[in-house]
Design a binder for these strands. Structure first.
Length: 576
RNA sequence: CGGGAUGUGGCGCAGCUUGGUUAGCGCGCUAGACUGGGGGUCUAGAGGUCGCCGGUUCAAAUCCGGCCAUCCCGACCA
């Protein structure tokens, strides 16, 4: 690539609407532009990076026995009715009609189409297992697109689907994908963690997310350094601390004028927040349910959904409080709350010495004991783990940190195959549903994650495996004939070797060239300047370390060859 | 959807409170000259429906109303 002829519109200043490093740098360095909220254009360098990442994914997927296909973005409503997701997916799915009024959705994911494809064309156990994947655009009408490529509405995703004859086969397919994912992220230069994950709208029982640790990550992950426990906080469990016991004191009603929040009441009564019972009112499928958690904890609604066995619930809104006038907002408590189902966090089992709302304006109860003063219908794990909690496996201290979810794998089981009648015939000719798995990688999100992990205040620092080019040739003062010739000569030598290089052949000042080069983040840089005038030597610079080495042309080429060879070796080896 | 903020040449911003005649600055862009190892200097230029619609006024970038867009926080989502 000749920089003078390549579309790389760099920006001296940061775009006003970019907050995080990856978004800011990808736009500034001319990889990316925004066309609307959550919708981006990929410029030549951005496209190259996408291709690099895609290539790594293809190599690992193919090596793992998956076959690449291409599925449509536009999908008929009928298929989604079959799985029940036409209504379940809600406004998250982009919908449109054709001229005849037929309804379609833009695929946010492809379980329906792939299941339809396989059920129509695969009918024998002899054809299983089968693993099909594609790399293509996905659409999700996110409530709030943000952070550039991290949460976009149109994005590139690799999605794979496995079909097996039984559960064991499915587990094997799952493990194969799990292993391939680790290699993919390692090859892309990321440090990552696989964590136990919730399955959400996709469904299934077992799932792992691949997380790239980053401050800007939207997910919180609970990790144990002592054992291997790692889970998304949405489902991470933790050992409860010693539950406070009652001392048999009599229940007492205390006047607490205008004190409603945990902080206000705790301060007024002189009690730790953990001694207060937070009584959250939820409307669950139309009926009120009380959820009790210790005052210093938040309810975890993903866990709650599991306990309630429904997604149809929400915290009371204003109207709900009006509909249930016997429940006093700010003073609800479990004592005497007979008409309402009560679910409590495990921590409160047998707890005493508690305080809670008295179901009477401006009053709270103290010396409350579970079992004696109120009864819980169900105890469950309904609060989130946080840093400092005890690991559920080994009891050591958990750490909660932010991460970017770059991939997720699911054991779907029979969810789609039964709903959509995706069956095969076994040796006896008996029709059985296929066991499915699905496996996603957010390709463009991964690109952003790589930048989050690899940048400094001057620009991007691409890992060689995904860089848009391996070498950036800068000839300073391009008007000087000898330097220009040397640069052109080096450029040609690289091209002959089939390397991807960028030649800065612009007549810009040295400062501009260096600044742009830092911004673009190509791993190696060959500078042709004063050293060349002196003794014909070139300067090889490493973007990551800023180290510089003076050497002659041949040494530089040999050095790069070594680097590229190492990259190839890494590609073949394991990761993790 | 709730809360907050912003919208002025390609980019980043000032001007708006207190309306006034040619709407400014930096960067970028064009032409020329000099310079040439960290966004260099000078000269001369081009480029703007001040987000959109309506209202108030002799007069609106500026005041008022509505709408749209974008970003942030939350809710939501995996």
């Amino acid at each position: 690539m000749r920089q003078s002829r390549t579309f790389i519109p760099t920006l001296r200043e940061s775009p006003a609407d970019a907050e995080i490093a990856s978004h800011r740098l990808l736009v500034r360095a001319g990889f990316l532009r925004k066309v609307a909220s959550g919708i981006y254009e990929f410029l030549p360098l951005g496209t190259r990076v996408v291709h690099k990442i895609s290539r790594i994914i293809r190599e690992e997927m193919n090596a793992a026995g998956a076959q690449e296909i291409m599925l449509p973005i536009m999908q008929p409503r009928e298929l989604w009715e079959e799985s029940g997701r036409w209504s379940k997916y809600g406004p998250e799915m982009m919908r449109l009609k054709d001229r005849a009024g037929r309804e379609f959705g833009l695929g946010p994911t492809h379980e329906e189409v792939i299941t339809d494809l396989v059920r129509k064309n695969v009918s024998s156990y002899r054809e299983l297992p089968l693993n099909l994947y594609q790399i293509g655009s996905k659409f999700r009408d996110e409530v709030r697109p943000r952070f550039g490529l991290l949460r976009a509405r149109e994005f590139l995703m690799k999605d794979a689907y496995s079909f097996d004859r039984d559960e064991e086969g499915m587990r094997l397919s799952y493990q194969t994908m799990y292993d391939a994912y680790g290699r993919i992220f390692t090859r892309c230069g990321c440090t990552w963690r696989a964590v136990e994950a919730a399955t959400g709208l996709i469904g299934g029982d077992v799932s792992h997310e691949f997380m790239v640790p980053a401050e800007v990550g939207e997910d919180q992950v609970a990790l144990c350094d002592a054992c291997s426990y790692a889970a998304n906080v949405e489902l991470a469990t933790y050992r409860r601390h010693e539950t406070p016991r009652g001392e048999g004191k009599a229940l007492e009603k205390v006047f607490t004028p205008d004190r409603r929040t945990i902080e206000e009441v705790g301060e007024f009564l002189g009690l730790e927040p953990s001694r207060l019972v937070k009584c959250l009112m939820y409307l669950v499928e139309g009926r009120p349910v009380a959820v009790l958690v210790p005052g210093d904890r938040e309810a975890n609604e993903v866990k709650l959904a599991r306990v309630l066995e429904t997604d149809e619930f929400r915290l009371f809104n204003e109207a709900d409080w009006r509909d249930h006038p016997q429940l006093l907002q700010g003073f609800v408590g479990p004592v005497g709350l007979d008409s309402v189902e009560i679910i409590a966090d495990e921590y409160l089992r047998g707890a005493g010495g508690l305080a809670c709302g008295a179901n009477q304006a401006d009053y709270h109860l103290v010396n409350v004991e579970e079992g004696r003063d109120f009864r819980v219908h169900r105890f469950a794990d309904v609060t989130s783990a946080r840093t400092g909690d005890a690991c559920p496996r080994c009891g050591e201290t958990l750490r909660v940190e932010a991460g970017i979810e770059v991939g997720q794998v699911f054991q779907l089981g029979l969810k789609y195959s039964e709903a959509m009648r995706c069956y095969y015939h076994d040796e006896e000719g008996v029709a059985r549903p296929m066991y499915m798995g699905c496996y996603g990688i957010g390709v463009t999100r991964l690109m952003a994650a790589v930048v989050e992990q690899h940048h400094d205040d001057r620009g991007i620092i691409w890992p060689p495996s995904v860089a848009p080019a391996i070498l950036h040739i800068l000839a300073l003062d391009y008007q000087r004939e000898e330097r220009r010739r040397a640069a052109e000569d080096l450029y040609r030598a690289c091209m002959e070797r089939g390397w991807e290089v960028l030649l800065d052949d612009r007549e810009e000042s040295a400062g501009v060239k260096f600044a742009d080069a830092d911004l673009l983040g190509i791993p190696f840089r060959a500078v042709i300047g004063k050293g060349y005038d002196e003794d014909g030597s070139l300067e090889l610079q490493e973007r990551a370390t800023s180290r510089r080495f003076r050497m002659d042309r041949e040494t530089l080429l040999a050095h790069l060859q070594d680097t590229l060879d190492t990259l190839e070796v890494t590609a073949g080896g394991g990761g993790g």
